[in-house]
């Protein structure tokens, strides 16, 4: 009990644990633990550069204003496009990482992106169907659409509500900023 100095007794002795559990205590000594200490100087990483070469920026790459430069290496998946791209680039350009509005805008852009994706993919597959004479999303090359996991009307309402709220918050932030600028 915590009311006196002794720790409550354990159900098993170290020897019992050692017998029951393979490897018990193998890393008892912190010196055997690879994550101890947290920081180690100049570990052998295999790198043969001081600063890595710069990856080519084939199209303008959005980046955090908390970076002094474009990082030497970066991902090139799904470049920004459409309205979602406008929102994303604005958010990266305007707000530091400590600002909640930055992240809410990015989440709002994700929802816009999903809608935009649905519009363009149905247009795209219709065009594909016209050319190849196949039905969209059917042939062996595409997975059959799975029924989406069932979501309750309440859950749906909550989710939609969250997007609206995110939009309102983001809108308010943008207005406030515009107001600040006009008042200057």
């Amino acid at each position: 009990m915590p009311y006196t100095a002794d720790k409550p007794p354990l159900p098993e002795t170290p020897q019992q644990l050692r017998d029951r559990i393979p490897g018990w205590g193998a890393d008892l000594d912190p010196a055997d633990r690879p994550a101890v200490p947290r920081e180690v100087r100049d570990p052998a990483t295999g790198a043969h550069w001081d600063l890595p070469e710069q990856q080519e920026e084939r199209r303008p790459r959005e980046r955090s204003i908390e970076h002094a430069r474009l990082t030497p290496v970066f991902g090139t998946a799904a470049p920004t496009r459409g309205l979602s791209g406008v929102i994303r680039r604005f958010s990266y350009r305007r707000f530091g990482e400590g600002r909640t509005v930055r992240w809410l805008l990015l989440i709002a852009a994700d929802r816009v992106d999903a809608v935009e994706g649905r519009l363009t993919s149905s247009r795209g597959s219709r065009a594909e169907a016209a050319v190849t004479g196949t039905e969209p999303h059917r042939g062996p090359s595409s997975t059959p659409r799975r029924p989406r996991p069932r979501r309750s009307p309440l859950g749906r309402a909550l989710t939609v509500g969250s997007w609206i709220l995110a939009g309102v918050l983001a809108g308010r932030a943008v207005r406030r900023m515009a107001g600040r600028r006009a008042g200057r």
Partner: peptide, 20 residues
């Protein structure tokens, strides 16, 4: 990257040179 401030201290998951 293996050589930034963080990688040089073993903090590989916190590399500064890969996430713009």
């Amino acid at each position: 990257c293996g050589t930034c401030f963080f990688c040089a201290r073993g903090l590989y998951s916190n590399c500064h040179n890969v996430n713009p």
